[in-house]
């Protein structure tokens, strides 16, 4: 059964047609890799899939049902990692993640969060305001959501490897592989050549004028 599919999806932004008639079907265990030059609309495609961006035409289907008709279920199953990290710079990593879990209705103890932050090499930085961390460390804090939301069945990742060191890339690659093997579906964009050894579908967006 398809976890996520798009049917003739079109997005217009600032009076410019970014893409039209995009179709794909993503099943459980599936990895969709969205490619294209800067400005081709990769981020807009991911935002349109999550429903943050309004589409001009076409529909997005989650478990063969229109996403717009089952927002709550879709949000329960989704982890979105976007350009903006969604971390308040004045709050610490721990406060940010506890707040996120409360918003997502995830029951998790502080010790679990400490453990996950430790796994992401952020030991000792849990209580430092996120604004004081480096760009790579901030992205690691945001990526901790992939570890926290174990009930998810779909990850939408926009450039997840940016600003990570080689150790971080290896850690994230392994996490994505584990998730795919466990039955999850992943959509991601990346400018680096994808290091993941896993059968993947590719979707190429062209830059349009």
């Amino acid at each position: 059964m398809s976890v996520l599919s798009a049917d003739n999806l079109s997005v217009v932004k600032n009076d410019r047609l970014l893409f039209d008639k995009v179709n794909f079907t993503l099943a459980a265990h599936g990895l969709l890799y969205v490619k294209g030059p800067n400005g081709a609309g990769k981020t807009s495609l991911l935002r349109a899939i999550t429903g943050l961006l309004e589409t001009e035409d076409g529909g997005v289907y989650f478990l063969n049902q229109k996403v717009a008709l089952q927002r709550t279920l879709f949000h329960q199953q989704l982890v979105y990692f976007g350009h903006k990290l969604g971390l308040n710079l004045r709050l610490s990593a721990l406060e940010n993640l506890v707040f996120w879990c409360e918003q997502q209705n995830i029951q998790v103890s502080q010790d679990d969060i400490y453990g996950i932050l430790g796994e992401l090499s952020l030991v000792g930085l849990e209580d430092v305001p996120v604004g004081h961390l480096s760009a790579g460390q901030q992205r690691r804090v945001a990526l901790a959501r992939l570890w926290l939301k174990t009930a998810a069945s779909l990850w939408v990742l926009d450039e997840p490897f940016t600003a990570l060191d080689s150790n971080g890339i290896a850690l994230l690659t392994k996490k994505v592989m584990d998730f795919l093997h466990a039955g999850g579906a992943v959509i991601m964009t990346s400018h680096q050549e994808l290091q993941i050894e896993y059968p993947r579908q590719e979707l190429v967006l062209e830059y349009r004028i």
């Binding site: 999550t50 429903g51 943050l52 709550t72 949000h75 329960q76 989704l78 979105y80 976007g82 350009h83 903006k84 990290l85 969604g86 971390l87 308040n88 710079l89 996120w100 918003q103 997502q104 209705n105």
Partner: peptide
């Protein structure tokens, strides 16, 4: 303003509330 700029608003919109 802050929630819009740092993306927290996107995550609030994608929560179940």
């Amino acid at each position: 303003r802050d929630d819009y700029q740092d993306g927290s608003l996107e995550h609030l919109m994608l929560s179940t509330t």
